[in-house]
Amino acid sequence: MKARAFSYARPSTVEEALETFASAGDEASYIAGGQSLVPALALRLQAPQLLIDIAHIPALRGIARRENWLRIGALTRHCEVLTDPNIARYAPLLREAAPHVAHPAIRNRGTLGGSVALADPASEFPAMMLAMGAELEIAGPQGTRRVAADDYFIDLFQTAIEPGELLIAIHVPAVGPHHRWAFDELARRRGDYAIIGCGMLGRFAGDRIDEIRVAFFSVGNTPVRARHVETALTGGRLGPDSVAEAQASLAADLSPPDDEHTPAAMRLHLARVLMGRLLGRMMVTG
């Protein structure tokens, strides 16, 4: 339960971090909050030669609204997601998801960027990137680029971030007065990985849904957008009939794996139940 020996570097700029990584070849790893990486090192699932501590790079901090986007620095901690007024106002799905992320002590240290860069398919924040239509700002040797969340998740723990690249910030389209949202998950105990979780964000005209994004986590190798559900709901009134129709179309979107605790059919059933509850909440809040 002790990490293998490694060297340690603490760059103060993004450029310095990228150069440090490049000079170490594939033997380096970035560390921010370390709340997933340190256990992986302790279990020797990973054993880098060099740890590059990015926690002291000012460019990775800060939360600021620019026109219709909220830019959230990658080093923003989960506990800041819980308390930041701009996140509560413009990216409320993150605020709703945050209490479900691990335990308080982990939230004091873990970073939003770290969670999104790791892309654990059972964790809350990566799926919310899909639900919010976020864009991920990634720095590499060729400069920075922005990747839409829909193009970001590739496979299990695999994202559009190439080796050596660094997630700089998360850009979220600011929620406005016509949006409604809902988040919840089913877990055996608070802080445990969810059996199933879902976040949704819709733009309404009265009780008609103009646009909606529905994202699930704990359903396979990546978080998943329920596009058949979204199509079924878009353009219609949100009511009991459209909820039932959405629930019926969910099987076309999700093919969760079997595991020893949760058969696939049970997970799909729970996904339908959870989604029904969340759509019901959006009716009430409207």
Partner: peptide
Amino acid sequence: GQIVHSCLIFAVQ
């Protein structure tokens, strides 16, 4: 001032 796991932080950090 914040509660954290000391097993999930390297002393250098």
